[in-house]
Design a protein around this nucleic acid. Structure first.
Lengths: 193, 193
DNA sequence: TTCAATTGTTTAATATATTGAACGAATTTA
DNA sequence: TAAATTCGTTCAATATATTAAACAATTGAA
């Protein structure tokens, strides 16, 4: 048949080889070590990792059993880590805009446990009083400028390096009292809103 | 090599064939229909279902894609349904004993969403007042005799065929006011206790 | 440096998966 | 009844997975 690099078929599982290779390397195993433990030839490990063959379920099970990882978990990796890991600054999602900018890491948070925001406040910008949304906790670190944070009856001006952490159900407010843009990185869990 | 019925190896996945067959039949597909949709031969479906071959990941993916079910979910079935499905009367677990008998369906409920009990009350037996355990809901159907059920300020005598349902946090009580043994089947969710 | 060991890859040989076509049995249709 | 489907299975032919052995490149030790 074809003489291209992918003999196993274009749609069989284009990333199966990379997944196996990553798992093997993470566990500090060479192809030969893994092959010996699994009782298979080292060549087949190489071929699988290059997607030059579509292993039988039986063989794959023997190999994965030495990682160890179950077939179910191995194939779960196929769908799970489609989630984006790295985000360039331009890829952050603006969810506010104007004098206050909230740039969110990731687009769909429905399956995540954290909401992480890069927040910027123009001089004088103010969020106003925000009350309990859901049961959640929230914290952050100021990275530029000055930020006045009010939580309940406590108020303080934070500067680069300072941080905060509070229960989101407390009324809270952010304001930039300075002359330059203020920036903060915050995290909130869970992101259910 | 061997001439036994299982050429794919004894430990490759002894139930893979049965899982595929069950899934196919549940979806009302014949071997030929499934094969045609997947673009493979009908023979290979038969062989896989008899565990006479260990399919390649590529082929299996094509086939499962027409069920449809993902590889991850398919192999998750391998471990999940080790859970017992059928229970003979003798296998129910007695968790009370005496004048009141609670026979539970299943031994370990830690991964389940329901606790199901077959309850028997000797004539005159009484559970006494039971208060809120956890946030849960509870219901049941009387199958024999008479059962006086008290929930909060409501009280009623139920007979075979009658049923009840209430929030477990309400104080509740069961009593057998009759002359014969009373029996009920109840369900409670979640079983966290 | 040089030898020895280890790495991942490739190739020909072999084992096995997969195909295409046939079979017998069970249903359906005429 | 019989002819026609459809079912699942089996078998020889073919395609492919897997092996065993060799290759080139890298690393570590002498």
């Amino acid at each position: 048949m074809s003489d291209g690099p992918d003999v196993a078929g274009p749609d069989s599982d284009p990333d199966l080889g990379q997944r196996l290779r990553s798992l093997r390397e993470v566990h500090g195993l060479s192809q030969r070590e893994l092959a010996k433990r699994a009782g298979v030839s080292n060549a087949v490990i190489s071929l699988i990792e290059q997607n030059k063959t579509s292993p039988s379920v039986g063989l794959l099970k023997k190999v994965l059993g030495c990682i160890p990882i179950s077939l179910a978990d191995f194939f779960a990796l196929e769908t799970l880590p489609r989630a984006q890991v790295f985000f360039s600054a331009e890829e952050l999602v603006e969810i506010a805009g104007g004098a206050v900018s909230y740039r969110q890491v990731g687009r769909d948070l429905s399956a995540r446990a954290l909401q992480i925001l890069h927040e910027r406040y123009q001089p004088g910008a103010d969020t106003g009083e925000a009350l309990l949304r859901h049961e959640a906790e929230e914290g952050g670190v100021v990275i530029q400028g000055e930020l006045e944070v009010t939580v309940g009856d406590q108020r303080r001006v934070l500067r680069a390096g300072d941080a905060f952490y509070f229960d989101s159900r407390l009324p809270h407010r952010f304001r930039n009292p300075g002359e330059v843009e203020a920036a903060v990185v915050t995290a909130c869990t869970p992101p259910s809103f």
